[in-house]
Nucleic acid binder design. Structure first.
Lengths: 194, 194
DNA sequence: GAAAAAAATGAACAACGTTCACGATTTTGG
DNA sequence: CCAAAATCGTGAACGTTGTTCATTTTTTTC
C-alpha cells in the first residue's frame, strides 16, 4: 500500500472542499468558518491546514469549482446557438441565470478579496481567461478582422458590461428588477454591443 | 450651554468618521479596525459605539462620504459638457478616474457587504438613486420619448455596464489594461450604448 | 458645592483563524 | 510479523477581532 496515505489525504481534501462549497452555497461566503468546515467534513480543526494553506486557499478552490461549473454551462450555451449573435446572447443569459441560480457561489467569485497585495494563483487566472475566450471566439466570428489586442479589449469590455448588469442586479442597494425585465435589459445590451 | 453636550458628541462622531475614512483610504476596507479608528480619533475603544451602532454603520457613513464626493465630481462633469453624448462620456470618464484616483474608497463602496439579510438604510439608497439620476437626465435628453420605467431600466443598464468595466479593471485576476486603453474601452462602450 | 445624571473608558467576553506539541497511525527495515 | 521510525490527525492554546458593560470621570442640576 504505497499510495494509501495520499489517497486518504486526497479524500479528506475533497471532503473539506465539498463541505466548504456547501457552506458557501447555503449561507454565503461571509459565513464560512474553519470550525464548520472541519466539523462537516468529520475531522479535527487543525486538519484543514494540512490540506490547504489557509482559508483563502480553500475559498480559491471553492471559486475554482464554481468557475468550472459556470464554464461548463457557458460552453453548452455556445454549442446550442448557431449564429455568433445568438451565441453572445446565450452566453449572457447563461451568465445571468447561473448567477441567479447560484447566488452565493457566484457572489463568492467576486466578494473574495485576497489579503494585502497578494495575487491569485496563476492557474486560477488561467481558468478565468479560458472562460473569457468563449466570448472572444464569438466576437471574432462577428468581426474576423479584429487583431488580438483589439479582440482582447473588446472581450473584456463585453464581459464587463454584462457582468456589471448581473452584478448590480444582485445588489440590494439598487432598485431591483424582475427576472423578466433583467433578461430584456441584457438582450438590449447585447444587441447594442454586438 | 444647552447644546454643549451634543456639540462634543457631534465633533467626536466626525473625528471618528474622518479617522475611518483615512484608514480605508490608505489601507483598504479590509484593514479597518475599531481600535485603530478610536486610537486615531483620540478616544476610548467603547466610545465608537456611542456614536455608531457598529462597524457596519461606520462603513456606511464612510461610503456615504465617498458617494458624496463622487456625486459632486459627476455633477461637475455634466456641467462641463454641452451635448448629451458628451455628458454621458464625461460621466463615464469621471467615474473611471474617480475609481482610479480613490481606489480603496471606491472599492469600499462595493466590497462592503451587510451581514445576514440586513438592508442598507433608506437614506443611503437615496444617495445612490440620486447619483443614477445624473445619468438618467442625460439619457432622457438623448431619447425624450422614454417613459419612466424604460428610462430607469436603461439608466441601470448604462451605469451597470460602465461600472462593470471599471470594476473589472481593478480586479487583479483579469488581464489589466493601461489607463489609456481603459479610456478607449469606455469611449467605445458609451458610443455603442448611446 | 453637593447630589444626580450622563458619558467616556478600557477590562472582559465571545468568536474567529491559525499554530503546534502531543498521541495515534502508518510505513519501514529486518 | 514486530519494533523502530516516520508521518499524520487532533484539539488545546494563542493572538486578534468586534462588542459589551461595570466602573470611573465629567457634566449638569438645584
Amino acid at each position: 500500500m504505497a499510495g494509501k496515505r495520499e489517497a486518504i489525504r486526497e479524500d479528506l481534501t475533497k471532503r473539506l472542499l465539498a463541505a466548504a462549497v456547501k457552506r458557501v452555497e447555503e449561507h454565503g461566503l461571509g459565513a464560512l468558518r474553519a470550525r464548520d468546515i472541519t466539523s462537516d467534513a468529520g475531522c479535527g480543526l487543525g486538519t484543514i491546514y494540512k490540506c490547504y494553506a489557509d482559508l483563502d486557499d480553500v475559498i480559491i478552490n471553492v471559486n475554482s469549482q464554481t468557475l468550472g461549473q459556470l464554464h461548463e454551462a457557458m460552453r453548452a450555451a455556445v454549442k446550442g446557438a448557431d449564429t455568433p449573435l445568438a451565441q453572445l446572447k446565450a452566453l449572457a443569459f447563461t451568465y445571468l441565470d447561473f448567477a441567479l441560480d447560484n447566488k452565493n457561489l457566484w457572489s463568492a467569485l467576486f466578494d473574495h478579496i485576497l489579503p494585502d497585495e497578494q495575487e491569485a494563483p496563476e492557474w486560477h487566472k488561467k481558468e478565468i481567461a479560458s472562460l473569457l475566450s468563449l466570448i472572444g471566439k464569438a466576437l471574432k466570428a462577428i468581426d474576423p478582422k479584429l487583431d488580438e489586442a483589439a479582440l482582447s479589449a473588446r472581450t473584456r469590455t463585453y464581459f464587463a458590461a454584462v457582468h456589471g448588469v448581473v452584478s448590480l442586479s444582485l445588489d440590494d442597494r439598487f432598485v431591483s428588477v424582475s427576472g423578466e425585465a433583467l433578461h430584456l435589459e441584457l438582450d438590449n445590451l447585447v444587441e447594442r454591443l454586438a
